[in-house]
C-alpha cells in the first residue's frame, strides 16, 4: 500500500479516536479535579521543604521554589501523555484473538496501532491537560504556575512537548509489542511502565534527585517524557541546551520505534491467535 493511502487511513483513525475521547466529559472533569488536588499537594510539600528545611536555602541544584512550583503544574499537565497501561482496545484485541482480524487489513499493523493508541491518548487527555495547566495559572500567587523563562525557551518548550508526545507513543507501542507475547502476562509491561513513570520527573523533578545520578538521569530515555520540556520552560535548561536535549528525545523515539517494529514483525511470524 502506498504512502498516501496510509496517511489518509491514519488521519481518519486519528479523527475517530479523538471524537470518541471527547464523549467522556464527566470523567475528564473528574480527572482534572484529581490532577489539581495532586498538584496543590506537591506545591505545599515543596514550599515546606524549601522554606523550613535545614539545607533549603542552598541545596536545590539550581531549581528555585517558584521554578519547582511551575515544574509541578506543567508536569501534571504532561503526565497525562504517559500511559499507565496499554490502550484498552488493543489489549482486548491481543487477549481475545482479534489480532487475526487486524492482520487482514491492508495496513501495517505497527502503524495502525501506533496511530490508534496515540490518538486515543490525545483524545481524552488534551482537554484535561489544558484544564490542569489553566488551574495552575489561576492558583494564589505563591502556588501559581509562572511565566516561561524566555520567549525562545517557550518555543523550545512547545517543540519539545511535541517530541515528548511522539516519544511517549513510541514507548507505549514498544511495550505493546512486548505484550504481544501473551504468555508473560501483565507483569513485565507493568513494571516497564512504572519505571518509566518514576524516571520521567513527574514523581520528583529530576534535578532534585541525588547528584551522582544526574548524568544518568539526563541521558535516560524517560526524562524526555516530561522533564526536558518542563526544564526548557522554567529556564533551568537554557535554550542553548535545547538542541541536544530535543535531539536526545528524537534519538530515543527512533530507537523505540525501531525496536517496537522489529519485535512486532518477529512476533507476528509466530503468533498464536487466541480465542475463537
Amino acid at each position: 500500500m502506498n504512502f498516501r493511502n496510509t496517511c489518509k487511513a491514519s488521519s481518519s483513525l486519528f479523527r475517530i479516536r479523538m471524537a470518541e475521547g471527547l464523549q467522556y466529559r464527566a470523567s475528564a472533569i473528574s480527572g482534572v479535579f484529581v490532577s489539581v488536588f495532586w498538584g496543590f499537594l506537591e506545591c505545599v510539600l515543596f514550599t515546606v521543604f524549601y522554606t523550613y528545611s535545614d539545607n533549603g536555602a542552598w541545596n536545590n541544584n539550581g531549581l528555585s521554589l517558584s521554578q519547582t512550583i511551575s515544574y509541578v503544574w506543567l508536569a501534571q499537565g504532561l503526565f497525562i501523555l504517559q500511559s499507565m497501561n496499554i490502550d484498552g482496545e488493543i489489549m482486548a484485541k491481543i487477549n481475545n484473538g482479534d489480532v487475526g482480524v487486524e492482520l487482514c487489513r491492508p495496513m501495517n499493523l505497527y502503524t495502525h496501532w501506533f496511530v490508534k493508541s496515540s490518538a486515543g491518548k490525545l483524545g481524552t487527555s488534551w482537554l484535561r491537560s489544558l484544564a490542569t495547566i489553566l488551574a495552575g495559572l489561576m492558583m494564589p500567587v505563591s502556588y501559581a504556575l509562572g511565566a516561561p523563562a524566555s520567549a525562545l525557551g517557550f518555543a523550545c518548550f512547545l517543540l519539545s512537548v511535541v517530541m515528548a508526545f511522539v516519544l511517549c507513543s513510541a514507548f507505549a507501542m514498544f511495550v505493546t509489542a512486548i505484550r504481544l507475547n501473551i504468555t508473560w502476562g501483565d507483569g513485565p509491561t507493568y513494571m516497564l511502565l512504572l519505571f518509566s513513570g518514576i524516571l520521567s520527573g513527574t514523581y520528583l523533578p529530576l534535578r532534585l534527585w541525588p547528584d551522582f545520578m544526574q548524568t544518568f538521569l539526563y541521558l535516560q530515555p524517560f526524562g524526555g517524557f516530561a522533564d526536558i520540556p518542563v526544564q526548557l520552560y522554567i529556564g533551568s535548561l537554557a535554550p542553548s541546551g535545547a538542541l541536544p536535549a530535543i535531539g536526545l528525545q528524537l534519538f530515543w523515539s527512533a530507537l523505540f520505534i525501531f525496536a517496537g517494529r522489529s519485535i512486532m514483525t518477529r512476533k507476528l511470524k509466530s503468533i498464536i491467535v487466541q480465542g475463537g
Partner: peptide
Amino acid sequence: MLIQVLVVVISDPIATVLLFSRFGNI
C-alpha cells in the same frame, strides 16, 4: 504479582526520602 505490588509500594515514598536526603530535616 506479590513482587510487582512490593515494587509499587516501595517506590511510592521514594520522592519523600530523596527530598529529605537533599534538603535535610525540617
